[in-house]
Lab assay of single mutants.
Amino acid sequence: MPSETPQAEVGPTGCPHRSGPHSAKGSLEKGSPEDKEAKEPLWIRPDAPSRCTWQLGRPASESPHHHTAPAKSPKILPDILKKIGDTPMVRINKIGKKFGLKCELLAKCEFFNAGGSVKDRISLRMIEDAERDGTLKPGDTIIEPTSGNTGIGLALAAAVRGYRCIIVMPEKMSSEKVDVLRALGAEIVRTPTNARFDSPESHVGVAWRLKNEIPNSHILDQYRNASNPLAHYDTTADEILQQCDGKLDMLVASVGTGGTITGIARKLKEKCPGCRIIGVDPEGSILAEPEELNQTEQTTYEVEGIGYDFIPTVLDRTVVDKWFKSNDEEAFTFARMLIAQEGLLCGGSAGSTVAVAVKAAQELQEGQRCVVILPDSVRNYMTKFLSDRWMLQKGFLKEEDLTEKKPWWWHLRVQELGLSAPLTVLPTITCGHTIEILREKGFDQAPVVDEAGVILGMVTLGNMLSSLLAGKVQPSDQVGKVIYKQFKQIRLTDTLGRLSHILEMDHFALVV
């Protein structure tokens, strides 16, 4: 994948999101292997301009796509893939009243899908469409860049269908997702969380590099694949309309690839034109409109599966009536509230959605109805927002919020430890010299600072030695090549209790 991002070429006709291997024109390309080798690009942008032909009021008969309808489940399912879809609609009884809503608040519980998330729908649909058009064949390999849930859905379907599955996901995604993927037989590649989507090191860039190296491999490409919004247009939206008897006044959905909100909203605009569509985008993402909503100094966020630093091709923002931004604290607070007060075992993005819903639905009156999409299960986040310690460490809970008995030293300040200034190293000294210094002084790690004293990161003896043994660096290389740029900081005025929580999850903390 090139470091400079080429513009994806656009073909003359058809839909841009065809499933299957992508040609340089962004659509299915038939021909000899030699032709494909000559024409197939190194990668295709996940934010390529959409060429979708959908228009409100256009006859369904003019759609270029294969459409399906929700099917009634048999008493005995032939395999677990038949437990994807037909998820329950559940009334939220307490939270709406707590925040003064007059309307009825309903939750579409997508964590009841077989793999635990709304992404099971698009995973199965992308595979079925690729099999139907002859792209996927027995023994082929599926590769997908994902925040985890699409990966789980694909790995689940691949396990049943017999495909090899490789999932490329950023490091910030939970260990629970990784464990589930491994249990399903998927191979996992992790990428830096802070890598831009168009960087060769991003999950998108690495996935395309693997595709170019592995024979008979395919990126189904949830960011561009029409099967993504079509899955929701054909099934999720129809289920909502049936469950609500066609009567709903507002739908609120958090947005990642945009397939969920695009597919549902398009069908609702056709069948229930008075329904307002509300999009939820986390602070630090750029999906919301108008652009002024996205202006923030924050560039990272903890909530998973929603928000991006690019506009995915499948996201149709014209069908969203209003956007709201959400933050991590309210997302996790509301997710825990949904679990504790409503018994809905949902993930953090569901918290984002409901946090926005109780604001947006203030305009609705008694007798009206708001539906929220709860995308995934708490299963993926047992060591994250479900953990009091994690919430404390991230600053989303305060010590006084917890009532468990603490040891005698818990409320003492870090400054009472009488710490001395640490050994520091410059980023320009060599790895070999740094190892000598650390061994001589008896230290395992040291902060790396520039000549102005600005902290650049941390270097550890173990990481340097393993990097040297693996051949990633040489003793003569500058130590700046092996620094940890993500590390926890703590102030002298913070409590030892807070430091204790940090050290339970990290090997060190830097006192500043």
Results as ranks from 00 to 15, higher is better:
202 S>P: 08
12 P>W: 08
122 I>A: 05
222 Q>V: 05
232 H>R: 05
229 P>S: 10
271 K>C: 15
180 V>Y: 01
39 K>F: 04
258 G>A: 03
210 L>R: 01
244 C>L: 06
151 G>F: 01
46 P>N: 03
121 R>W: 03
155 A>T: 11
184 L>K: 01
118 V>I: 06
246 G>R: 13
59 P>G: 06
19 S>C: 01
165 C>P: 01
234 D>H: 01
101 L>F: 05
116 G>C: 11
25 K>I: 15
40 E>L: 13
68 T>E: 13
180 V>A: 13
99 F>L: 07
125 R>F: 11
221 D>T: 06
208 W>M: 10
38 A>C: 12
45 R>C: 01
178 V>L: 04
96 G>L: 05
42 L>R: 14
128 E>S: 06
219 I>L: 09
144 E>K: 14
17 H>M: 07
42 L>N: 01
247 K>M: 12
95 I>R: 06
142 I>K: 01
94 K>F: 01
105 L>K: 04
261 I>H: 05
87 T>Q: 05
25 K>N: 12
123 S>A: 10
69 A>R: 14
258 G>I: 04
141 T>V: 11
182 R>T: 14
45 R>W: 08
182 R>G: 10
213 E>A: 15
107 A>I: 05
186 A>R: 01
229 P>I: 10
92 I>F: 11
30 K>E: 14
132 R>S: 15
189 V>I: 08
275 C>H: 01
6 P>R: 01
130 A>C: 07
145 P>S: 04
75 K>Y: 08
105 L>V: 11
159 A>E: 11
10 V>E: 07
213 E>Y: 03
27 S>R: 07
246 G>A: 01
247 K>D: 01
46 P>G: 01
179 D>C: 11
131 E>I: 05
59 P>S: 13
5 T>S: 11
17 H>W: 15
198 D>Y: 04
114 A>I: 01
35 D>V: 10
253 A>D: 07
23 S>C: 04
251 L>H: 10
33 P>F: 01
92 I>V: 11
58 R>A: 15
98 K>Y: 01
112 F>E: 08
80 I>A: 06
250 M>I: 08
234 D>C: 01
60 A>V: 09
174 S>F: 04
235 T>F: 13
224 R>H: 11
98 K>N: 09
113 N>I: 04
50 S>C: 01
204 V>R: 01
260 T>W: 07
182 R>V: 01
78 P>I: 06
18 R>H: 12
196 R>P: 11
257 T>F: 01
273 P>S: 10
249 D>C: 01
94 K>C: 13
14 G>L: 14
219 I>Q: 01
109 C>H: 01
139 G>L: 07
201 E>F: 11
28 L>V: 13
222 Q>R: 01
177 K>G: 03
162 G>F: 06
160 V>D: 03
24 A>G: 15
90 V>D: 06
231 A>V: 11
235 T>N: 09
203 H>D: 05
95 I>A: 05
131 E>V: 09
35 D>I: 15
225 N>A: 15
173 M>Y: 06
123 S>D: 01
231 A>W: 01
129 D>C: 06
247 K>V: 04
212 N>L: 12
208 W>Y: 13
233 Y>I: 01
225 N>H: 04
60 A>D: 01
123 S>C: 04
139 G>C: 09
203 H>P: 06
180 V>C: 15
219 I>Y: 06
246 G>I: 06
247 K>Q: 13
169 M>Q: 12
77 L>G: 06
179 D>G: 09
24 A>C: 10
275 C>T: 01
105 L>I: 11
221 D>M: 01
221 D>V: 01
157 A>Y: 09
43 W>V: 13
226 A>T: 09
221 D>I: 01
214 I>L: 07
27 S>W: 12
266 R>Q: 07
132 R>D: 15
31 G>V: 13
247 K>G: 08
26 G>S: 15
219 I>F: 06
102 K>G: 01
134 G>R: 14
120 D>A: 13
269 K>A: 08
44 I>F: 12
249 D>Y: 01
9 E>G: 11
122 I>C: 03
183 A>G: 14
143 I>A: 03
104 E>A: 09
109 C>I: 05
71 A>W: 01
129 D>F: 06
207 A>N: 01
219 I>K: 03
170 P>L: 01
33 P>S: 09
21 P>Q: 01
25 K>S: 09
17 H>F: 07
172 K>A: 01
75 K>F: 04
246 G>L: 04
60 A>Y: 10
215 P>L: 05
212 N>A: 01
209 R>G: 08
8 A>C: 01
212 N>G: 15
183 A>R: 01
242 Q>A: 06
23 S>E: 15
173 M>F: 03
164 R>M: 01
104 E>I: 01
10 V>A: 08
61 S>A: 10
9 E>Q: 04
12 P>I: 05
215 P>H: 15
96 G>Q: 04
77 L>F: 13
197 F>Y: 01
90 V>G: 05
64 P>H: 14
62 E>V: 07
145 P>M: 05
224 R>P: 06
155 A>D: 04
140 D>P: 01
2 P>T: 10
164 R>Y: 15
26 G>A: 01
210 L>H: 01
215 P>W: 07
259 G>L: 01
180 V>D: 01
161 R>D: 05
30 K>D: 13
263 G>N: 03
